[in-house]
Every structure is written in C-alpha cells, then in structure tokens.
C-alpha cells in the first residue's frame, strides 16, 4: 500500500518532461530559471561586495566580466529572466481565468518572444558593445 502514493521526495520527477504537455514544460522551465536567477542574485551580491574592497578589486572584477564566458553567463541570465517573467505573465493571466483555453498558444508565443529577446540581447552584447 505504501508505494505509488504522493510524497514530497518525488519532486525530482517534476523535471521529467516525458509524456508531458507544454503546461508542464512551462512548469519545469519556470523552476529551472527560478533556481538559476536565485543563484545569479547570490553571485551578483558577492560581486557587488567587491566595491567595498577598493577600486583595484573592482577593476579586476570588471575585466573578468568582459571575458566571453562571463558574457555567455550573463546572456543566460537575461534568457532566464525573459522566460521566467513572460511565463509568469501567462500564469498570472490564466490564474485569473484569462486565456485559459489558449494557454498552449500563450506558452509558445511567450517562449518565442523570450528566445527572440535573447538573440537581440546577444547581438548587442557580442557584436555592438
């Protein structure tokens, strides 16, 4: 009787996209991006702490921030922010009974917008500035 029952320890199975609908893919994406953004916030605060260590420490950090790998990381942060924010709008709308019957289309539309935004930001980050 004990197996097959709901249990908090099964939360990792939330991240299994097999046989799932776009609604669950959005659910998975929102959690992954939320974890990524939380991690970024912590790193961001640590980096801001460099300000307290004087101009040299800050300049060293800025030089590091301009390396390609860090730029890729920043682009991922922007992408995560766009995906999380836009999907958040979708969830807010559907939670108030708006657009529930087109929630799949909303998901694909907002995801396309997020990817488009990522490409635009990437272009400016890598080719303009």
């Amino acid at each position: 009787m004990k197996n097959n029952q709901p249990a908090p320890g099964k939360a990792l199975r939330w991240f299994d996209p097999r046989h799932r609908q776009p609604g669950t893919w959005a659910f998975i994406l929102n959690r992954i991006t939320a974890l990524g953004l939380t991690l970024y916030l912590a790193l961001h605060l640590i980096m801001l702490g460099k300000l307290a260590q004087g101009p040299d420490a800050y300049d060293t950090f800025i030089a590091l921030a301009k390396t390609p790998w860090i730029k890729v990381g920043e682009l991922l942060v922007i992408s995560a922010g766009l995906i999380h924010g836009l999907n958040g709008i979708r969830i807010a709308l559907t939670s108030f009974g708006i657009g529930v019957t087109v929630q799949r289309q909303l998901f694909w539309g907002f995801l396309t917008l997020a990817l488009l935004g990522t490409v635009i930001f990437g272009y400016f980050m890598f080719f303009v500035h």
């Binding site: 799932r20 609908q21 776009p22 609604g23 669950t24 659910f27 559907t94 939670s95 929630q103 799949r104």
Partner: peptide, 9 residues
C-alpha cells in the same frame, strides 16, 4: 495547482 494543465489533457 501549478498550471501544468495535464488533467485536461
């Protein structure tokens, strides 16, 4: 509910 919409599917 976390809006997975699996129930309707």
């Amino acid at each position: 509910c976390h809006s997975g919409f699996e129930c309707t599917a």
